[in-house]
Design a binder for these strands. Structure first.
Length: 492
RNA sequence: CGGGGCGUAGCGCAGUCUGGUAGCGCAUCUGCUUUGGGAGCAGAGGGCCGGAGGUUCGAAUCCUCUCGCCCCGACCA
């Protein structure tokens, strides 16, 4: 699947088979495999994030975490296991998550007499734990003790970790039983504080996605139906994939006083009266890696946005015979040091492989800039430079100093180009329609992508059937239309 | 959990209908020639045919049961 195959003569050879057009889901998996981002594990539904994929996630954390701290958020670590009784506290919340919880019921194993191990019947827990599907309840419990006075507010907490939701159908990055994320949990004096928090964080997400991950999307409010279980209001950033489906890249929730009431988060207000705090929670997950793939990737594989790419520049030595090896490698080495000292993430691929294979490897991994250094370049003090997003047509030879000086611009150009492609994708896959009939005929005619319709259609009893028929859901009511429209789409 | 597909060498697959010595391509290893977008020739190694039971002289192939993966739904970040 990750190997080149003889495509039909008409199509140019691609590094990835199947192509996006042939089979989008198959293409998606092939990209992950070819880029060596992640793989399935022996644990059903749980992935192994491989070093290259994890490096990407680490870069996301490194970028985003300081923003949170700057805003006033403090990092914490709460237990992986949550007492079942905690989860049971908030009615909506239970209903939302109970059916996808992994439960820990024992604390000891014993031999089953057949060479295996089973939970010991003598070691059953009095109260089972659930592996956290999200941490509102256990953090809420702590908040109820930590918050006494309005002086303790706002309390802004976050943790980087993983959670588990027992999903029926899993797909690498997009939906796995265990997934990695950050989860912010904050408490405020009033609704104004909580709402402002949700919107501030949502803006932060948008900035992160646009300025670092180079993708566009719709910021807005979720419909009542699509709200987080236990939230008064859910905000989201919805992005559009190359197959026209929507993907929720991040959400923020105004939990109102729902969790404050169920967890007992009360404080004495400025008038000395006991008052419930207003809490929020917000998150983005390793799912955004799936979004990166489906937004930027092409038939040659991954395309990493330069500002988040684990490796921004891959230097490929092109050796003809042994006599040149050391001078070429020295040249690469000095170039690497030069670029590293300027803060770029650079690698020289000096593996003992054919150079053309190394080039394809860099292509499939989506490394933004590829540099080829052979005898010619060494002699002339030049480098040959190729942009991943534009392919071999963009191959250019530059003097070394010129390359080093312009690299920031090259990376910015790649970023800008990816972002504007993503905006174009979003626009091309959004139809502005007025009536249910329009929606029906659009999808009936095999229309691909999302439709934006007046919010009043949510009231229309005919909408359900259409949503059902075409597997649509209400994604978000975009801010750009001031809540007057709602985006309907198939979604990941 | 429903409907469909699939588990055979590291990867991708054929062989299964019609039971009879385990195959192909790529990758790997060796040698020589090559090297600027997936090199050529010659040779070599590699398998409990997902697992467990059956039927049979004989099972990758037939039967039963299981486990896992993929796609489309339902559920969802």
């Amino acid at each position: 699947m990750n190997q080149p195959q003889k495509n039909t003569p008409k199509k140019p050879m691609t590094a990835i088979t199947p192509t996006r057009e042939d089979d989008f889901a198959g293409w998606y998996q092939a990209v992950i495999k070819s880029a060596d981002l992640a793989e399935n594990s022996p644990v059903r539904g749980s992935m192994i994030v491989k070093p290259y994929g994890w490096a990407l996630w680490e870069n996301m954390q490194k970028t985003f975490d300081p923003w949170l701290k700057d805003y006033g958020v403090q990092n914490t670590a709460f237990p992986l296991l949550i007492p079942v009784s905690f989860l049971a506290k908030e009615a909506q919340h239970v209903e939302g998550f109970a059916k996808e919880c992994a439960v820990v019921t024992h604390h000891r194993l014993e031999a089953d007499g057949k060479g295996g191990l089973i939970p010991s019947s003598k070691a059953e827990l009095e109260e089972p734990f659930v592996v956290r599907p999200t941490s509102e309840t256990i953090i809420g419990d702590a908040m109820s003790r930590w918050i006494q006075s309005y002086r303790d507010l706002p309390l802004q907490l976050n943790q980087w970790g993983s959670v588990m939701r027992w999903e029926m159908r899993t797909r690498l990055f997009l939906r796995t039983s265990e997934f990695f994320w950050h989860e912010g949990h904050c408490a405020f004096e009033d609704d104004a504080g909580a709402t402002k928090d949700c919107l501030t964080i949502l803006d932060m997400y948008e900035k992160f996605f646009r300025d670092y991950l180079a993708f566009d999307g719709y910021k807005g409010v979720k419909t009542a139906e699509e709200r987080f279980p236990g939230a008064d209001q859910t905000y989201a950033f919805e992005s559009i994939m190359q197959d026209g489906k929507a993907l929720q890249a991040a959400t923020t929730h105004n939990l109102g006083t729902n969790f404050a009431k169920s967890c007992g988060i009360k404080y004495q207000n400025r008038d000395g009266k006991e008052t419930f705090a207003h809490t929020t929670s917000w998150a983005f997950s390793t799912r955004t890696i799936g979004a990166l793939i489906m937004i930027h990737g092409d038939d040659d594989g991954m395309i990493m946005p330069p500002r988040i790419a684990p490796t921004q520049v891959m230097i490929i030595p092109v050796m003809k015979d042994d006599t040149q090896t050391s001078t070429i490698l020295d040249f690469c080495d000095s170039l690497t040091r030069q670029l590293k000292s300027k803060g770029f993430s650079v690698k020289t691929d000096n593996r003992d492989m054919r150079s053309s294979d190394k080039m394809w490897d860099a292509v499939k991994k989506g490394i933004p800039v590829r540099i080829e250094v052979g005898a010619r370049e060494v002699e002339q003090g030049q480098v040959t430079c190729v942009r991943r997003d534009l392919g071999k047509e963009s191959k250019k030879t530059l003097a070394v100093h010129e390359f080093v000086e312009t690299l920031p611009q090259i990376l910015d150009q790649i970023h800008d180009s990816l972002l504007s492609k993503s905006t174009a994708l979003k626009t091309a896959y959004t139809q502005n329609l007025k009536t249910l009939e329009d929606v029906k005929s659009f999808y009936h005619a095999e229309g691909k992508g999302c439709v934006k319709v007046p919010v009043s259609l949510l009231q229309d009893t005919g909408l359900e059937a259409i949503k059902e028929t075409y597997s649509l859901t209400a994604r978000v009511m975009p801010f750009e239309d001031e809540g007057q429209t709602v985006l309907l789409a198939k979604a990941y």
